Structure formats: structure tokens, C-alpha cells
Simulated scan of single mutants.
Amino acid sequence: MESTIVTKLKPELNTLVLLKSNTKPENALQIKTGKYFCIMSLFAQSVIKGKTILFDRNTYGCPGACAGLGFGTAYDKAMGGYETFATFFSKGLESAEEPEKYRAFAEKMPSGVKQKLIEGERFHCSKQKAYKWISKDLPLFDFPEEYRILKPLKELKDGEVAESVIFTVNPIQLTTLITLTGSIREGVNETITPQGAACQMIGNFVFKEGESNNPKAVLGLLDLAARHTVQNILPDDVLTYAVPWKLFLALEKEAEDGIFSSPLWKNLQ
């Protein structure tokens, strides 16, 4: 698919789409079954090299990506379930209701994982808040399609509809996309910045916005764990800007004679 936005924005990195399908694409990268893995490293390969990435219910990488890709949730069963994740996402051992049991669980893990479990990722100020986030606040989807496909927008075929269109952009490009979105949306605050994993900021948070009659864009790569994963692959000054399909189509139309025709944009080129 040719995109007016991409043509005028000229991002250095590939704009991607995330879609669901029952058809397995040829020559797609896919991690090994059951392997624990941060899928943002695969995302980075698609952004830089234009690779097509394939996921299914056995190759989604980690519990965060299970939710992010619309395969339901694994937070309730993986790694000790909600209790362990709520402790891990808050302050680790000092948040644990049964410290010795939690420490014994952590001791069985590889050294890097063990240290994070003990200290906690500290994404939430308390175990109670973290528990509410994973069990109630996080939007969950369990789409019936077998596969999730991540690939460049330019490779989207006629008839294919993406769930999420993902721009990976620098600050000037991001400013322009936010301006473009604000120019067509009613009200203010056209972009959300959810607390979550980077894969969720291009996936399930975007799916949720896609259900709205007035969907917002989702700003992403705001996950320190993912930033560590992609630090030596992607520039430090890029963020993701993901939009549901119907918002993307509206932005495409406005891009023809909107902000890209402004002297403000032209003067920055």
C-alpha cells in the first residue's frame, strides 16, 4: 500500500502494520515455540530491515505480548500468576506478601531475571495497583484468528485491513503526526500514553481505541524494559505512534492538503 503520510513525512524507518490472519505468510521470521523473548527486538528488525514477523499462540514471546497481540492473557497462569506479576511489576521482594516463598521462586530463575524479580521493575507504586492493572485495567482481546503478522505498511495487500498502523519517528516527525491527528479529531488530547509494555502500545491499547467512534492515537516505546531491548538497534530519540485503521484512513485523507502543505512543515525540511 502506498501511503500519503509516509510519502510526505519521509520517515527513516519503516512504517509497520499489525494484522490478524488465518493465512501463514511465506519467509516470515518466527521465534521458537515456547521461547521467552521480548518481541520488540523483532519489531526493531521489521522497522529497520522490513522483515515480516509471525506470531501465534505458542510463539508470542512473553505474557506481556500475549496480551499485546490479542491472544488473551497469560498473566493469570505464567510465572506464578497474578500474584507474582503484581509483586514483580511493583517493588519486588519488599512488596511480596510471602517474602520467603517469593525469594525461593526468584532463586530458581536465571541470574538476570532473578535480580529483576527481587528488586522489582517498579512500574507501579504498590502491589495492589499492579494487581489491578493486570487483572482489570489492561484491555484484553482474544481474537480467533490463528496468526498475528507484523510487516511494513508498503507490503499491505489489497483487501487486507490492519488492526494497528505503527509509525516509528523522531521528535519533529512525531510533532507533525500529533498535529495531523489533532487537526481532525474532536476535542483535545488526541494521543494517549498508557502505562504498559511497548508491544501493548502498538497492539491491544490500539485495538481498544479502534472500538471507539472517535479513536485516539497511542504513543509508545515508553517502556524501559523494551528500550533496553532495542537500545543497540533503534535510535534513542524515536518513539512509536500507533493508530487504529479507521483513524489511519482519516489521517491519510487529511494528509493530502493538511499540515504537510503548511509553510511550518516546509520550513522544517
Rank of each mutant, 00 (worst) to 15 (best):
M1Y: 07
T4E: 15
K8T: 05
E12Y: 02
N14D: 15
V17L: 00
E26V: 11
Y36S: 11
C38E: 04
A44Y: 08
G61F: 01
P63H: 14
T73D: 03
A74L: 09
D76A: 14
F85G: 06
F88D: 00
L93Y: 05
A96D: 07
R103G: 04
F105I: 11
M109P: 01
S111D: 14
Q115C: 05
L117E: 00
E121I: 13
S126V: 11
Q128M: 11
S135K: 12
D137M: 04
L138M: 09
L140P: 01
L140H: 02
D142K: 13
P144D: 07
I149F: 03
I149Y: 06
P152K: 09
L153G: 06
E155D: 15
E163M: 10
V165K: 05
I166N: 09
T168G: 07
I172K: 11
I172Q: 10
Q173P: 09
T175C: 14
I178G: 00
I178L: 02
N189P: 00
N189R: 12
C199H: 07
G203F: 00
F207Y: 14
N214G: 08
L222W: 08
R227T: 07
T229P: 03
Q231P: 04
I233M: 09
D237P: 13
A242Y: 04
V243M: 01
P244L: 09
L247I: 03
L249M: 05
E252F: 04
I259D: 01
L268D: 02
